[in-house]
Design a protein around this nucleic acid. Structure first.
Lengths: 345, 345
DNA sequence: TTAATTCCCGATAACGTTACCGGCAACGCT
DNA sequence: AGCGTTGCCGGTAACGTTATCGGGAATTAA
């Protein structure tokens, strides 16, 4: 009972050939019912487990999905959970690798998995990534690849994302409706798609209300709390400081909030604030921060479904792009006009 | 260029045997320098990638580590990051599988990975798990296994955890020093080790200060925010309600905080609150919640190191148990006595 | 010159599995 | 009786790699 039992052991003990055992095991035709029973019984007794490696080597597929993510924060962890759910159901095992937003780690992780460990990839690109050659290798190998959340025009692949532009629009329009006049945006890194899309929504909202965008109020900064804190400090020291800030992530909103509080300004009276993601934390801080809610779990599930479709489908799906709706959740940080029932009109 | 290049292709094109190519590739002796150069050059040109499956099949090891976690919340994600860091460095790829705190999923995930996909496991058990037979299979196969964070006496395996008992003690002693008299504890599920250890610390602190534990103030409840919220509501409706609450996780502390605020009680004046984990969120809410800080990232790294040691070490390491220090971080939620410099004595 | 040593290399088996082909009975049909 | 069909099974190659062995040529030692 030391070495794990193999198909050969069963064949030898039953005095039949390994081919027959193999057939019996996977319910193939051309095998007598009695023989099958005997094989099943013995395999049970020997606690036989088919060797996945050998199988994968033979039929050149692993039934593993490589999931490449830049980190495992709340949103991505939720998405991964969605992926996991669907993948498991479909008989796939997922290998999650996080790159820590590092370009180098992203490449290393990818190459590792690429070496015949997975059948394909579900990817959300790192914010550091500006070059996409390593992903091309996946496509060269004809491997299925699905991108999610953070997409990029440089990759021809099916994908699913949220309507970032609309999210940016909803957030900005809401601030305008609340009477804010000088609305700043903390956009993320310049090369990140979601960053620019949310910025586009911001710009469209300004345009709709005939407000002129002010370059001084459009801040690009790294996707994290501390940089948002610093950027907000600078914003608040301007002669004509903004009276509202839209940050493209909740983490950044938290940073902004800290700077605002430190300055002694009140939300929403002195300054309005809206974030993005609707992470649990924004409803816990005081004041609660308005934020654009996105269906992260659902998005993960769709990503996995797309992957499986791509696997089983011969036709080119690289043009497929699912876009999920988002919805602004209004909280105290931006709600100046209060109606009778406590909601904005 | 469609099919990936193999060692055979190189051999054929160079008119040498596959053995020689194999040797050349892995810097084995017995190969001429010229030959090696030629092999290297051609393998570069053909973009050759050794097939990990074949290699694993041959030498019966995969260089993969299966990491089984109950979820991917902040603390565990941080630990996984630590594992990842060390594992990658040592040439291992990690496969993260989350069980969603479900016993069934834990088993499914484990069996998947067990079928020759990984060389061993690093495990944090699900809170639902009361039976550990499935883990025994790992040991039967002589596979290395390391447990982390959530340990259990039912598994003989090396592990690393934090000093939960001391954490519970620090938190409770602090509350006592702040003059709280009726200190409740929201403990987690009864079968969870970390839950009981933190409770033990709580009890030891009470004993040290000659305070009698009150069974009505010891609440077992599920490890999540909502149940903590409900439990706190009940606590606050008692005739002799507690004047402080220690929750064994920050998520539960948040739930408690919500119930406390709803009741209109002030922290720390009317009631004190201390959590566990020191997640970022506790410093963001108002008032900031005191919490026991644990070195999650470090813990992950040590878990991975233990694993690698176990791999390379023939001797039995199942008795090894590393315990990491924790440290209470005091915030407004529990700080009644303020000294000149704003710290407790 | 001969023997011993070193340097390279190739052939083969093996890891555990499946796919393909061929073959031998037994059976049914004309 | 002869023929095709069906049911069942075994042998073999292959997936891509490494380990083991053996052996020939070249170099060195005696």
């Amino acid at each position: 009972m030391n070495k794990p039992a193999t198909i050969k052991d069963i064949a030898r003990q039953l005095n039949i050939s390994i081919s027959t055992v193999s057939r019996a095991m996977r319910n193939a035709p051309d095998v007598n019912i009695e023989t099958r029973k005997a094989v099943m019984a013995l395999s049970e007794e020997l606690n036989y487990q088919p060797n996945k490696l050998a199988l994968s080597l033979k039929q050149k597929q692993t039934h593993n999905i490589g999931v490449l993510v830049p980190n495992l924060d709340y949103v991505l962890a939720t998405m991964v959970k969605g992926i996991d759910e669907v993948a498991l159901e479909a008989g796939y095992t997922v290998m999650v690798c996080q790159s820590n937003e590092s370009f180098g780690r992203e490449i290393v992780n990818m190459r590792r998995l690429l070496d015949s460990l997975v059948d394909g990839f579900i990817i959300s690109v790192s914010s550091e990534t500006k070059v996409f050659d390593h992903f091309r290798k996946i496509q060269e190998k004809q491997m299925p690849m699905v991108v999610f959340d953070r997409m990029t025009p440089f990759l021809q692949a099916p994908g699913v994302r949220i309507d970032n532009e609309d999210g940016g629009f909803q957030a900005t329009e809401h601030l305008i409706e609340q009477g804010y006049k000088r609305i700043a945006i903390l956009a993320g890194p310049k090369n990140l798609g979601i960053s620019n899309e949310r910025l586009d929504g911001y710009l469209r909202a300004l345009k709709k209300y005939k407000m002129k965008p002010d370059q001084d109020l459009i801040i690009y900064c790294d996707f994290n709390q501390h940089y948002a804190y610093l950027a907000t400090q600078e914003l608040l020291q301007m002669k004509k400081r903004p009276d509202a800030i839209f940050t493209i992530s909740d983490r950044m909103a938290i940073g902004a909030m800290l700077a605002i509080k430190e300055k002694g300004l009140r939300m929403p009276q002195d300054i309005g604030l809206v974030g993005f993601n609707n992470e649990p934390v924004v409803s816990l801080v005081t004041p609660g921060i308005s934020s654009v809610d996105q269906p992260a779990f659902e998005l993960g599930k769709i990503a996995a479904k797309l992957f499986i479709e791509t696997m089983h489908n011969e036709s080119d799906m690289s043009h497929v792009e699912e876009v999920l709706k988002v919805k602004l959740i209004v909280r105290e940080s931006s709600q100046r006009i209060v109606t009778k029932n406590g909601r904005t009109k």
